[in-house]
Nucleic acid binder design. Sequence first.
DNA 1: CATGAATGAGGGTTCATTCAT
DNA 2: GATGAATGAACCCTCATTCAT
Lengths: 213, 213, 213, 213
Amino acid sequence: MTDSKRRGRPPGDASADTAQRILDTARRLFAERGYAETTIKLVAARAGLTSAALYHYHPSKLDLYVAVHAECRQRFLAVLDAAQATALTFTDKVLAILDASERLQADDPIVGWFTASARVDVARRPELQAALRRGSDWWTQLCRTVVDTGVSTGELRADDHAVVMAFLSALLLGLGETAALDERLHARALAGSRLVLDAVLRGRLGRAAELVP
Amino acid sequence: MTDSKRRGRPPGDASADTAQRILDTARRLFAERGYAETTIKLVAARAGLTSAALYHYHPSKLDLYVAVHAECRQRFLAVLDAAQATALTFTDKVLAILDASERLQADDPIVGWFTASARVDVARRPELQAALRRGSDWWTQLCRTVVDTGVSTGELRADDHAVVMAFLSALLLGLGETAALDERLHARALAGSRLVLDAVLRGRLGRAAELVP
Amino acid sequence: MTDSKRRGRPPGDASADTAQRILDTARRLFAERGYAETTIKLVAARAGLTSAALYHYHPSKLDLYVAVHAECRQRFLAVLDAAQATALTFTDKVLAILDASERLQADDPIVGWFTASARVDVARRPELQAALRRGSDWWTQLCRTVVDTGVSTGELRADDHAVVMAFLSALLLGLGETAALDERLHARALAGSRLVLDAVLRGRLGRAAELVP
Amino acid sequence: MTDSKRRGRPPGDASADTAQRILDTARRLFAERGYAETTIKLVAARAGLTSAALYHYHPSKLDLYVAVHAECRQRFLAVLDAAQATALTFTDKVLAILDASERLQADDPIVGWFTASARVDVARRPELQAALRRGSDWWTQLCRTVVDTGVSTGELRADDHAVVMAFLSALLLGLGETAALDERLHARALAGSRLVLDAVLRGRLGRAAELVP
DNA sequence: CATGAATGAGGGTTCATTCAT
DNA sequence: GATGAATGAACCCTCATTCAT
């Protein structure tokens, strides 16, 4: 009536925080390999489970991805938003964001990598786009808040709003890319960005070399 | 296999035509969906062939990707390098590159998209990395050339070489990203970049709004 | 496991309640979807348990099926056999069976559906066949009893025994099918059957239309 | 670049009529095991292919089923409709259908089995229902045609139309069931049916035993 | 009794690739 | 050059079942 091969849960096994281990593993793998190339089986194996067990926590690959995405977005947003909120002017807000993202990247680089990686995956796969429609523009929102501040403090002309937002987006995107490419490059690009922003926004031009550790 | 047809292609040669159609189709699909999600069958179908027939032109998916990549790199490099070569100073070279990339993007957006898309795919897949090792750093090379010029003209301090290169890389990468995301965003980010560079490099600050069409 | 609770079940006993709920749910699902398509998890969920909990009541899916099957057979047999026993002649016994099956169907249609559904499932799966070998021919037995009576009362020739049994089986099977397909169709088919049997067995031919409600 | 294990079509293999072999195998397996229990892999193996190769002929399991279903329906309908068309009265048409179905069953029993088996599978699975909506009522249509004839020839009262159709359906369904259960039972049930119909429709009652081979 | 977590064994399907024609 | 037919390797997901609590 029952097969000779053992089916069912094996005896002697109980490990907590499996859920978090799954998320951590998935985040790293999604970041490194992207959505398509990351198999559920591999995530499960790296987290110490069978793929079937993983389905106990997330009902589908897409759901797993969404969960990871949400977690990353939240962590990113919490840090950057807090940083931006501590500053009062446009200039300070931008620089605070740079600082915060640098700290986050140093603290847990995978969050940043995943975020960069996710951008292309989401753009490529309509299913992900659909599943993530809500809250996927936090990035733009953040930029808008900062630029709005700039306009209201008089640092920026209202006319320049769109262009500044676009430039800021491009710069932050580019910094994210360098973070994914090479740690040293990222550090230098950050230094350069601070320098340039300082020059443009405060009118003083420093020496780049002094800024890089 | 495609090399012999490239120059002096006889008019009405169906084979050369097919070869180019394959490359065009593949470029677009690789750009839109990435490497893993693009199937040989789909490329073939869109190009009007069977997948088996495609193997007459490219011996494997990876080879096809490499071919597309090489073609794009060459086209990109030709344009940007020519543009940079016409200018004499760092400042002018950078602005020339911006102009040229904007023209290229307007002319054939897919080349730009593919380039952005390829970055992540290559980073993700070791096989691609291995196959593309040669010539994959043209990007860095170009930046280096330009920054070198800046140092030799005295526009930049030698100490700042690395930081400026990193900043330039980040900015150009970010602009590439915006190009892939949204045409208008890209246009504005370009305008903003010109403005900022002008301000930093020439010390004059214009109004952003005037630059956007 | 369920046997002990069956008679004299103490009022308010949750366990016996659960057991019956499981059987009811399973009967309906097995009837509607068949054996393979009915998952233990779904039965459990509909009965308000976990699938693991269901295993406290039935040690395997097959056992659950067997339990449902036995229950249905018993209920069916009890009704039909009682009905048949009240009549003395072949003709009356057959008509009594038709009446009784109609009442049963009206009372709890799922029992009939399950019985029809079970026939194919058992025929399809050797495991079920093996597990149900005992008592799975109650159907034939019932027919035989009735036909035997016909022979002994002189209504049927002994030579015709086999053919009449086969015809009766076919007709009852067919009626069961119509019951599963459509209620109205079943009602009409029953009416037609009564008419035809009356004509053949008693030599009087009525109007069909008068028999259908 | 290519794996060590051989991928692709193996050398030295070319067999025609694969398509028909697939249909034959699938018909038998679907008939014997039903939809859910029949795996694509098994069909393929029995037909001498890999499951992947089967997808070259039918894009999904459901499509394969639909193909088999259509083929069976067509064969069934062709035979029964031709038989019915040769007769002019209701009585003769019904008996002709019985004869034809008996011949078909003797000729290729699997068609009949599949048809009986398909009924429950289609009823159970909404997907099949949806896919087969067109032409799934050929059965009813055939009955209607025959009964219509009976009314127009005066053999049946118009009032009895519905009841006769229902009875005929039930009887034919039941005969189909016996065919699936046991060959001898089917033969006897057919004989009994002829007898009963003759008695009811022509008013003469024969001896059943003479009709069975 | 009941549950949550876990497993092995598939099941349908896709895909890059290859061979014969 | 081009095509249809074929393959092995995966991939996502489901399911009956079991164990610890």
